[in-house]
């Protein structure tokens, strides 16, 4: 596989350099109710070939981060108002649509939660796969057909040739997500952003899709940003995790450390409130009080303080910055020592 060999050389040369660097990324939304900030200047890197898990609940900004990185935010309601997204020498935050179109689907690709709405119901699977292959790689019909069949085999579809002729409605949810993954991988992207890729699927299908993604990541060496609300999915799959709350990163760490030594009260609260599969829980589960504040009425200081059992007056004064608490482990909490 010459493509893989080339990839290895590239990876070796860029061992320390991030594949993509997000710097002070700020996104504002403009709605009927007014303007609010969905992302407050977040910064992070993704290393080549690594898996970054982004965990958060509704309103945390995890999906906005993904859409901003792909420059797929809805034009009329959302805008990148600050920061940079540096990818292969280009600042995606300020790139022209023409350059973005060249990158999207080729060097970076995305899969979404609901494969049903991402596939076009009136075109065959083969047609939808060939489209990207023709656009980005300039393949003719025969070559594109061959490659499309290879891709369906890659995502473990048992009769790939027959599948090419099928239409989305003829496939199960899991098969559709496999097709979406095949389309995303068509041009060997260096970065795959997966936004809740298994949330809409049944448990056994979810496990099979995650296993597929993990295998493919090993085989193809791409980096993955995995966005999820499910800490279990992250535990299985990510190398590094960042936890988001109300438009900010509140903690990031190697995956083992997030579970072993959570250092932000929100992370600790999330971990404890999940019922265990292995042990008997107390009759009442530990909970995080209250709910996420409205983006139109963010509390002053740390956005989590109204729900935090450790909060004091000092937590309302300023937004705590991410600070180093261990090797590769940062937490944005002034009481992190008490967590």
């Amino acid at each position: 596989m010459p493509r893989n060999a080339a990839l290895q050389v590239e990876t070796a040369a860029a061992v320390a350099a991030p594949l993509i660097s997000v710097r002070s990324l700020t996104v504002d939304f403009f709605t009927a109710r007014g303007r609010f900030t969905a992302l407050h200047g977040i910064s992070f890197d993704v290393r080549p070939g690594s898996v970054l898990g982004i965990v958060g609940e509704s309103g945390s900004g995890k999906s906005v981060t993904a859409l901003a990185m792909m420059r797929l935010l809805p034009d009329h309601t959302a805008r990148i108002t600050g920061g940079q997204i540096l990818f292969q020498g280009t600042d995606l935050a300020h790139a022209a649509e023409r350059d973005l179109r060249r990158l999207r689907g080729r060097d970076m690709a995305m899969i979404f939660q609901d494969p049903t709405t991402s596939l076009n119901p009136i075109f065959s699977i083969g047609h939808q796969l060939r489209e990207g292959l023709a656009l980005h790689l300039g393949l003719g019909r025969a070559a594109a057909d061959r490659r499309a069949e290879e891709l369906l085999a890659l995502v473990r579809i048992s009769s790939p040739r027959a599948c090419l002729a099928k239409f989305p409605h003829e496939l199960s949810g899991g098969m559709r997500q496999r097709v979406m993954i095949a389309i995303a991988l068509a041009c060997n992207p260096k970065l795959l952003i997966a936004d809740e890729p298994t949330t809409a699927l049944d448990v056994t299908t979810q496990a099979q899709i995650l296993e597929l993604l993990r295998d493919l990541q090993g085989e193809l060496g791409m980096a993955i940003i995995l966005i999820t609300h499910d800490l279990g999915v992250v535990a299985e799959f990510a190398d590094e995790v960042q936890v988001m709350y109300a438009g900010r990163i509140v903690e990031r760490a190697p995956v083992a450390d997030i579970f072993a030594v959570p250092s932000h009260p929100y992370t600790g609260g999330l971990l404890h409130s999940m019922p265990s599969l292995e042990e008997e829980d107390p009759a009442l589960l530990p909970t995080i009080a209250g709910m996420v504040a409205s983006p139109f009425a963010m509390p002053p200081g740390c956005a989590f303080h109204p729900r935090c059992h450790l909060a004091g007056a000092d937590c309302t004064r300023a937004v705590p910055p991410l600070a180093r608490v261990g090797a590769g482990h940062d937490s944005a909490c002034i009481r992190t020592a008490h967590v």
Partner: peptide, 25 residues
């Protein structure tokens, strides 16, 4: 057994028994 082994563990590094490719319902 398949359902139970499909649930992601909360213990990173502890490999879940790999679910055989059992297809869909």
């Amino acid at each position: 057994r398949a359902l139970l082994s499909a649930v992601p563990s909360h213990r990173p590094g502890v490999a879940r028994t790999r679910l055989a490719d059992i297809g869909e319902i």
